[in-house]
Design a protein around this nucleic acid. Structure first.
Length: 650
DNA sequence: GTTAGGGTT
């Protein structure tokens, strides 16, 4: 701890904090900011009048950093030093330093807008610009001016955007703390390669043959490319190995890899052996691999974007930002001087790369965010003028307002309704929280809880359909429930009910190729949602997962509740074919996703109306996760849509 | 007739 660079700056940092309500700290990698800032403030006595909070964008970081600080202070985790993440609060009356995810802090500010228990709030890793951090930045700006008791705010960021954050907080002071990285030599390509898989392959082999020992970390965009490159590398390395150079181990690393495969990168290689780790941006911030000396950066990353004009998401391969490229390069300098090979010219880095990653708030649907802000009841708030560091477009905010209006969360004047207030208490997308409230009225809350929980984990449930996995299957695809023809929401419900019938057996999940991690997560979400709904519905007891199964049923009430909740995600079938058009504000032609279990009728046609969970544009525009609904439920929504006047919703 | 970057309440 004593040799962390930040320790020398303690006096300066404390002085600056004493004299200013907000301070921006540029803390480079390895500066020790995450563990030391809170302790400095504690030493100065800031924990006498309240708690020092440190937010993190990720759960694992909140846990691991707090553990470290507890250790350094020689206290038991959960007492003077603790953490709070979803499903787990390890703090006590005695807690003085609290690490928490930014999402948890947002939840807390819902019930206590002044956050009075905190004397200091440190927003760590603000340069990552997560949706939640961006909301917090806006809230902090209001709070430092308005809170009765004294509040200090510290924001840690990266070199390239520190100025901007400082400017946002009325030109507050900006301190730079050096990191503890070894120098990393950067090599640029002469031009962009036609294939970055091939180019990575060539660069990796060059390193293997010419450079001294040290692991190689290669940044690719996704699972597909990773698997391709791993195969090619294995092939080439095998043909090299006839004594000419050291051994090699090649490891893929991405988010959909089972945890036991992910942790393989943490075990050190045998002697005289080089590891090649072929990774997504998971290795940029979430996982740190020791022993890396060489980095190969493709310069690309996959990013999910939302288009408010169409309501459609797409997953695009885009160029990384300068901050990301530097973060990637820095991964080579953790243990000794390293080298970074950028598969693009310096001109591209300088002229084409953005300084900072486009913040998530400008790439997401904002219905949840806007509902959250409305529910805070901030005085004289105009959502369209909320002071964001990087404001989302008016179009995106209006899209959110329209969605909220259609599901009764705000009235025609844009004021939050009592339904909207209840919705904001649920940790769900607005469409699903609206569904729960309606389901409670119709006596099918238990089913809706399951559907909402399943959809909260959806991408982590079903197995990965990559080609290599296809071959690994021990048995042919098994018969999971089929949604009784009504579609994917009903299927998700039925799957969970089966699991419940099998006493939540892990073996059952494995047998059906369902991701165990995902299913356990669903169970926890469902429990949390049940508790909140029981509080809201004052003793409603219809929350048992096994309550509803009574032979054949048509799930009518549940589908009706879904129709109300997804009022802004409705589609009508075209008269003569099986395509649909969305009934939102701008009509889109879309198809039911081929993976859907929705079944056509005897004439081979789908039902006239469906609601969908999301629109995703891949090879074509698709509706993912659809549920058949009835015309008579749709009509009132269409009436409401006609009366809609966006300009009044502001 | 098909998608999977990373997070979070």
């Amino acid at each position: 701890m004593a040799n962390l660079p930040i320790v020398q700056f303690e006096k300066k940092i404390i002085e600056t904090v004493e004299q200013n309500p907000v301070v921006v700290i540029i803390g480079e990698t390895g500066s020790g900011k995450s563990t030391q800032l809170s302790q400095m403030l504690h030493r100065k006595g800031y924990t006498d009048s309240g708690i020092v909070a440190v937010t993190q964008p990720r759960r694992v970081a909140a846990v691991s950093v707090s553990r470290r600080v507890a250790q350094e202070l020689g206290v038991r985790l959960g007492e003077e030093v603790g953490y709070a993440i979803r499903f787990e609060d390890r703090t006590s009356e005695r807690t003085q330093i609290k690490y928490l995810t930014d999402g948890v802090l947002l939840r807390e500010s819902l019930s206590n807008p002044e956050l009075n228990q905190y004397s200091v709030i440190i927003l760590d890793e603000a340069h990552e610009r997560s949706l939640n951090t961006d909301i917090l930045l806006g809230l902090m700006k209001r709070l430092v001016g308005s809170r009765a008791s004294n509040l200090k705010v510290l924001i840690t960021s990266a070199t390239l955007d520190g100025e901007k954050v400082s400017k946002f907080f009325s030109d507050c002071p900006l301190l730079t703390v050096p990191g503890k990285l070894f120098p990393v030599e950067i090599f640029y390509s002469k031009e962009r390669p036609t294939s970055y898989v091939e180019s990575s392959l060539k660069t990796a082999l060059d390193i293997h043959v010419r450079e001294p020992e040290g692991d190689v970390l290669i940044f690719m965009t996704g699972q597909d490319d990773i698997e391709k490159l791993v195969l090619k590398l294995e092939d080439k390395v095998r043909s090299l190995e006839e004594g000419s150079c050291m051994d090699a181990i090649i490891l893929p690393l991405h988010g959909s890899l089972p945890p036991e495969m992910q942790v393989r990168v943490f075990s050190p290689p045998p002697p005289n052996c080089r590891r090649f780790i072929v990774a997504t941006n998971i290795a940029e911030t979430s996982l740190t691999v020791d022993g890396v000396v060489y980095v190969i950066d493709s310069g690309y990353v996959k990013q999910r974007q939302y288009n408010p004009a169409t309501g459609m998401y797409s997953l695009d391969v885009v160029q990384v930002s300068k901050v990301q490229a530097n973060q990637r390069a820095g991964r080579a300098g953790r243990t000794r001087p390293g080298k970074c090979y950028r598969l693009y010219p310096s001109r591209v880095y300088n002229d084409e790369f953005l300084d900072v990653t486009v913040p998530e708030i400008q790439r997401s649907s904002l219905a949840g965010t806007v509902l959250y802000l409305k529910s805070l009841d901030l005085p004289d708030i105009d959502i369209l003028k909320f002071d964001f560091l990087d404001p989302p477009s008016t179009e995106s905010l209006e899209d959110a307002l329209k969605q909220l209006y259609l599901i009764d969360a705000i009235d025609e004047n844009g004021s939050i309704t009592s339904v909207g207030r209840t919705m904001a208490e649920l940790p769900l997308e607005p469409s699903l929280s609206r569904t729960l409230i309606e389901a409670n009225e119709y006596g099918c809350l238990s089913q809706a809880l399951t559907v909402a929980a399943m959809l909260s984990a959806e991408t982590n449930l079903l197995p990965n359909r990559s080609k290599s996995n296809e071959k690994k299957r021990k048995h042919p695809p098994l018969d999971l429930p089929d949604g009784s023809g009504f579609g994917d929401h009903i299927q998700l419900l039925q799957i969970f009910e089966c699991w419940d019938e099998n006493d939540y057996d892990i073996g059952w999940c494995k047998y059906y190729d369902l991701q165990v991690r995902g299913m356990l997560f669903v169970k926890e979400v469902r429990k949390q949602l049940s508790q909140i709904m029981q509080k809201i519905a004052k003793g409603s007891s219809d929350v048992q997962a096994n309550q509803s199964r009574k032979g054949h049923q048509n799930y009518r009430n549940l589908r009706k509740a879904l129709c109300i909740g997804y009022a802004s995600q409705l589609a009508e079938r075209m008269r003569h074919h099986n395509g649909y058009r969305t009934l939102g504000f701008k009509s889109q032609l879309v198809q039911v996703h081929p993976s859907s279990v929705l079944q056509p009728d005897d004439d081979g046609l789908y039902g006239s109306y469906v609601v969908y969970h999301e629109l995703i544009s891949t090879s074509r525009p698709y509706m993912r996760n659809v549920c058949a609904v009835e015309r008579q439920w749709v009509m009132p929504i269409l009436d409401k849509l006609e009366k809609l006047n966006v300009s009044k919703l502001r």
